[in-house]
Design a protein around this nucleic acid. Sequence first.
DNA 1: TCATTGGCATACATAAGTGTATGTTGCGTC
DNA 2: GACGCAACATACACTTATGTATGCCAATGA
Lengths: 180, 180
Amino acid sequence: MQPPVLGTDDWLDLALQELKDHGYGALRALPLAKKLKVTRGSFYHHFESLEAFHKAVIGHWAERSSGDLIKASLEADDPQMALNDLLQLTLRSGAQLERAVRSWATVHPLVAIEVEKIDDARIKTAERLLLRNGVTKSAAATRSKVLYWAAIGRMMLPFPEHNLLTKNEITKLTSLMLGK
Amino acid sequence: MQPPVLGTDDWLDLALQELKDHGYGALRALPLAKKLKVTRGSFYHHFESLEAFHKAVIGHWAERSSGDLIKASLEADDPQMALNDLLQLTLRSGAQLERAVRSWATVHPLVAIEVEKIDDARIKTAERLLLRNGVTKSAAATRSKVLYWAAIGRMMLPFPEHNLLTKNEITKLTSLMLGK
DNA sequence: TCATTGGCATACATAAGTGTATGTTGCGTC
DNA sequence: GACGCAACATACACTTATGTATGCCAATGA
């Protein structure tokens, strides 16, 4: 399956997987080593300490989230589709990881800083989307925030899949937000 | 300071405090016992096990959150004030605890269930507020969700205080949501 | 071919936690 | 004034984790 020798990225990829599935409490050397079927000797060969490892995990996540699905969907031209994607944002490959990272951010300052950067970037993207569709500058500033917060808030519900909006609801909401 | 003898509630009150300040990782017997200046003997006298303690903590929180500030603010008659309170919802005594509980819910099924109950109740409250202000039934159903999600999403930002809406922004948003 | 290096194993010391069994103390109560 | 119980303390066995020191081995390039 895996090559007999591992690189730093193999540890980081597993870390994101475990973070997604079991939360930040799973980011420790021994359990991860067992999953990779090696000993902690390998871990401490690749990383100076647990904290150094955690920083690397954050970096790995931030890298993968810079040009991610959310942003891509918001770049779309069709505002209806874009807002639909934003509001329905859920387990669509990555949302569960985001949930875990956001949870981690409540107890880890460096994670919090990285998350804020990504939030700000995405809000700006949503704002541009609204502007391109004729919303005034001040309204776009407010509504992009509220829409993004709603997407995050829904994703952070215990069971996001219990709270889907119908296509029809999205349509009306889009009209409302675009002032049409 | 504290009486020399403690009751179960003293443990639960401290638990909520530590949960708020340091996250669910702080909910363990030994550190809490140290803070109460007793040994774990007291802990295992009041609670069967760690898991039983955790369940008690959840119940304690749910009890206190059933008639809480968010709901109270949503009961207000002035829709502007109510929506303002909802959207600005932040460290206003309790939001930080909510952040921690929501974070906990991502890794603990029973917490997730309790949080969902409270979410549903609050959304219904917000919906009634919109209905009382002339919003149609279907619009109220959608908008109450989106508004509540936005409040939760903003609260879950790493630094909610960096994302305040101005009074003017709230006013315009209220008009939009009430269709006026 | 041989010294170096990357990738890991092994062993040890230490820390922090759980759970359990049992002893102790104070206090109401009959 | 002995009884019983609530509220602890103490001691022990166990588990799971970190960090560090050191050794092994296979590949590789001079």
